[in-house]
Design a protein around this nucleic acid. Structure first.
Lengths: 203, 203
DNA sequence: GTCTATAAGAGGATAGAC
DNA sequence: GTCTATCCTCTTATAGAC
């Protein structure tokens, strides 16, 4: 552990504050509707100062996405090390975490195809590397869960992987929360159920 | 049927061409990334002329969404009139149509919470009325399908409704299509399966 | 109703002093 | 590294001639 000077510590603290704000704003309004002015105002610094830390709006978003990926990767490593858990249980744990994070307003954004952020992120090595690493880990569990007979073997692993990723930005959570009649736990249980068990009854 | 003058017919034809372009562009890039210049250029008229037909970019998008809603409503009416079909079969038919439409690049847009289009549409009576009508019809089928024991009765009908709507803008379709290894029919079958049967195997 | 030209404003990014 | 002030581009929308 390198010792940091006071200057370095405040620098890192400021960057952490910026990233935290960006994550929240991305979750709230998405990349296109989030403005750099807004980020600067929220953090409480001038816009020009913001640009000393991050080269562009895209870099700002990429930092937020990288941090979220790091959280997912850490959770995945913990799951992988947890003894006695089955592959589908590990998949369910990660999925539930993603739903909780989104419902808490801390899941940066939608990886939708037509998102301008998506194109920006494709150029960011740090984000892409993390995405690949997470995909590899989830892919392993998916194949294992299919071998265990726990996941539908007629689905290509790719389809399962994309479905899990897509649930992290599923608008259903927001719709149900907007109604205001249900608790977060209920909402998450229902979406987990539709994801893994489907809408149709299991008789 | 009122007879239309030549002038009126060309007027309507032009508006139809505009709406068709808007639907395609909304599907391609979303509301924020679609520009009015682009729409005008694609239709082949000047932007000022476009504004003689539609008062704003929001009105443009609303017209596209209304037309899509009309298509869904017509399909729903046909389904309701189809004898011998069960409620869950009707739900599956509508869902499959939505997936096909999205995969064909003709599903205007994402009703995501943080979409700026969403806020714009809330003010458009024509769109909201159609949305309500469609929701009512689907809601009836959902309640019936639960009574039939075909849909999971532990899910509130609302959750099922939102899930069906959300599938119409599910990024999974685009992800799988981008891979290029699967046919549209395969992709739709898999997403239909994950939607109604879930990821877990049914033993 | 169609066009050209332009207003009006938002928002990303930077210059230059401190 | 932080600030104020400004630049510049893109985009929505409109003015005004025909």
């Amino acid at each position: 552990m390198t010792r940091l000077s006071f200057r370095e510590k405040t620098h890192l603290a400021r960057e952490a504050a910026i990233v935290a704000t960006v994550k929240r704003l991305l979750a709230e309004k998405g990349f296109d509707l989030m403005t750099v002015d807004e980020v600067a105002a929220d953090v409480g610094i001038a816009k020009a100062s913001l640009y000393k830390h991050f080269a562009s709006k895209e870099a700002l978003a990429a930092a937020a996405m990288e941090q979220t990926m790091d959280m997912a990767l850490e959770l995945a490593r913990n799951e992988a090390a947890r003894p006695g858990a089955t592959a589908i249980e590990r998949l369910r744990t990660i999925t539930r975490w993603a739903l909780q994070t989104q419902l808490a307003g801390e899941m940066p954004t939608l990886p939708a195809e037509n998102s301008s952020l998506r194109n920006a992120l494709l150029a960011h090595r740090g984000y892409m590397d993390r995405l690949m690493a997470l995909s590899d880990q989830l892919g392993e569990w998916i194949v294992q869960a299919q071998a265990d007979g726990a996941l539908d073997t007629r689905l290509p692993p790719e389809a399962v992987l994309y479905t899990v990723f897509a649930r992290a930005c599923d608008p259903v959570l927001g719709f149900l929360k907007a109604g205001g009649r249900y608790s977060d736990d209920e909402i998450i249980d229902w979406v987990m159920s539709t994801c893994f068990n489907g809408l149709a009854s299991r008789s």
